[in-house]
Amino acid sequence: MSLAEDGLLIVAIDGPSGTGKSSVSKAVATALGIGYLDTGAMYRALTWWCVDRGIDLHDRSAVAREAQTFPLAMGTDPAAPTVQVGDRDIAAAIRTPSVSAAVSDVATNLGVREQLIRRQRELMARVAAETGGVVAEGRDITTVVAPDATVRILMTASEEARIARRAGELASTAAATRAQVVDRDRRDSAVASFMTAADGVVTVDTSHLDFDGSVKAVLAVVDEGRGRD
């Protein structure tokens, strides 16, 4: 399935933890008047679902089977994105420390990745058709999920900046924050490429940018990419 269609704006944003890609992506989608998709939330939702159902996350085949059919619904309004499984709102539950600590076991499962990448591409195509475009952020979006996107961006930041930002969000110890940021990135990078820009992907370094500056930098790249397109 190709996401590249005339008139549709597909913005793919990759990057490691703590670069600001989630908050910036939502602001960019709002500014552009298009939909938003947090693909990382889909892995978190599956993690929550499996734990809730008592499925061993190390049973890779069982978890991959759940990825095919679990009743996930993603709300793609950037002003109020939602995550539901069945009739349960789990947007807060998937951000708990227990899910954060376990999600890499799911995200590095190749069977899971195959199923969720399929779902991501289908959802991106639907949202883009409904709103004129979509900003999708996560890991390997620019290289695997949407290599044909109109604009592909890798958001980066220094390790120090990333840890400082995430520590502020989590109000946790330095060791716990490092585990959330650096250690998880190291595990996930075994199956997803999100640390260096592939050919045709524009790098936006947010190390020394505040939120508004980061949004402006990404919008400038989008404007340039739309002009080329």
Rank of each mutant, 00 (worst) to 15 (best):
M1I: 14
S2P: 02
A4D: 12
A4F: 03
D6V: 04
G7N: 09
G7V: 05
I10H: 10
I10Y: 07
V11N: 00
V11M: 08
V11E: 00
S17N: 05
G18E: 02
T19H: 05
K21D: 04
K21W: 02
S22Y: 00
S23V: 11
S23A: 09
V24F: 02
V24C: 03
V24Q: 01
S25A: 15
V28Y: 00
G33H: 06
Y36E: 15
Y36C: 11
Y36Q: 12
G40P: 00
M42P: 00
R44H: 09
T47N: 03
W49D: 05
C50E: 08
V51R: 14
G54I: 02
I55V: 11
I55L: 11
H58K: 08
H58N: 13
D59R: 07
S61R: 13
R65N: 11
R65S: 10
R65D: 15
E66G: 04
E66L: 09
T69M: 10
P71G: 08
A73R: 14
M74Y: 06
M74Q: 08
D77A: 14
A79N: 12
A79P: 00
Q84M: 14
G86S: 10
D87K: 02
R88E: 05
D89V: 05
D89R: 07
A91L: 12
A91Q: 15
A91Y: 05
S98T: 14
V99C: 08
S100D: 08
N109F: 12
N109P: 02
L110W: 07
L110F: 10
V112M: 03
R113M: 13
L116Q: 03
I117H: 12
I117C: 10
R121T: 03
E122K: 06
L123Y: 06
A125K: 02
R126W: 09
V127W: 00
A128R: 04
A129W: 04
E130Q: 15
G133H: 10
V134C: 09
V134A: 04
V135K: 00
V135L: 11
E137H: 01
R139P: 03
I141M: 12
T142K: 03
T143S: 12
V144E: 07
V145W: 02
P147K: 14
A149D: 01
V151M: 07
I153Y: 02
I153H: 01
S158C: 13
E159W: 09
A161G: 03
I163K: 07
I163P: 00
R165W: 06
R165T: 06
R166Y: 09
G168M: 12
E169L: 08
T173K: 15
T177D: 07
R178C: 03
Q180M: 15
R184T: 09
R184N: 09
R187T: 11
D188R: 10
D188Y: 09
A190K: 08
A190R: 15
A192H: 01
S193W: 14
F194M: 14
M195P: 05
A197E: 07
A198T: 01
V201T: 04
T203P: 01
V204R: 06
V204N: 07
D205M: 10
H208R: 13
L209T: 10
D210F: 03
F211G: 13
F211H: 14
F211P: 01
S214Q: 08
K216Q: 08
V218Y: 06
L219T: 11
L219P: 01
V222G: 01
V222W: 06
D223T: 11
D223I: 04
E224Q: 15
G225T: 02
R226W: 10
G227I: 04
D229C: 12
D229V: 13
